[in-house]
Amino acid sequence: MRREKIIIGAGIVLAVLPFVLTEYWLGLFTQALIFGGFAMGLDLLVGYTRMPTLGHAAFFGLAGYGTALAITRFGINPWIAAGIGVLLSGGVAVAFAPLAVRVRGLTFLTITLAFGQVTWGLATRWTSFTGGENGIPSVPRPDFIWDLNDRTGFFYLTLIVVIFVSLLISIFASSAVGMSFMGVRGSDTRMSALGYNVQSRRATAFIVAALVAAVYGVLSTFFNKFVGTGSLSWQLSAQMLLAVVVGGFGSLWGPFVAGSGLHILKTLLIGSTQRWPMVLGLLYVISVVFLPGGLSSLVPTIKQRMIHRSKGKEHARYGTNSK
C-alpha cells in the first residue's frame, strides 16, 4: 500500500501548483501530467511484460480523434464522446492485440510500428473526414461542476484523473495479473507450465496499456481543444518508449517522471530550436549506454532501506520488489 499512499501524497502536493505557477507553466504541467500518465501505463507493457512497442501512440491518438470527431461531426455530448473515444481505442486494441502477441521481438516491433502508421496514414490521407494534416480544431471541453475552460479548472480535472488512473495502475501492477506479467517477461515456457495462458496475458498487457493511453489521449484533446496527426505519430510512440527506458522498467514512478520531464523538455526546446530529435536521440544513446537501469535504478539505496525497515514489521510481506 506504500505506493498508493505516495501517489495520493504526490497528488496533494501537486494540487498547490495553480497557486505558485503562471498560466503558461500551469498549462505545461497539465500536459506533463498527461504524458507522464501515458508513460506509466506503457510501463505495464514495456517494463513489466517486456514488449517493446513503437505504436502505442495510435491508441492515444485514436481516442482523441474518436472524441473530437464524435463532437464536431456528430454533435455528441463531450462526455459521451470521451467514452466513445476510449471505447474506440479499446475496441481496436482488443481486436489487434491477439494478432500482435502471436509474434515477438523484432516482428512485434515492426507490426506495432506498421499498425501505428496505418492509423497515422488514415488520419493524414482521409482528409475529408479527419481534416488531414490540419487535424480537428475547436473541440469544445465538456461541462463540469467547475469551469473546465479555465486553466486552473482543467488542471484539477487532469490531476484527479491522473491520481485515479495511477492508483488503478498501481493496484493492478501489484495484483496477481500484474505479477503474471513479470512472470511472462521472465520465462513464458515456465508460465505455461504453471497453467498460465501466456498469449492472453500478453494481450491483456497490450490492451490495458492501450486503455490508459486512450484516457490520456482524450484528456489531451480536451486540453488542446484540438487533435492532430502528431498524436498518432511514431515519434510520439518513440518518445513514450524512451520515457519508460529513461524512467526505468517496471518502476511505474520512473516512467511517469520521465514522461512528464520529456514533455517539458520538448516544449522548452521546440520553442527556440529545431533540435528536439537530436536531444531525443542523444537521450536514447546516453540512457542505453550509461544508464541501462533508468532513473529508478539511481535510488536503490532508498528502496533497500525501506525493505529492511519493513522486514520486522510486516510479517506477511515477502516481496523483494514491493512495488
Binding site: 495484483s175 496477481a176 500484474g178 505479477m179 516481496g319 523483494t320
Partner: peptide
C-alpha cells in the same frame, strides 16, 4: 527478479483460482 515466495505464489494462484485477480495486491 521475484522472491522465493512469489515464485511459488505464481503456481499457487492458479490452484487457488485467483490468477485472474487484478483488483487487489497479490500478497
Amino acid at each position: 527478479e521475484l522472491s522465493v515466495l512469489e515464485n511459488i505464489l505464481m503456481a499457487a494462484l492458479v490452484q487457488a483460482g485467483t490468477s485472474q485477480v487484478f483488483w487487489k495486491p497479490v500478497h
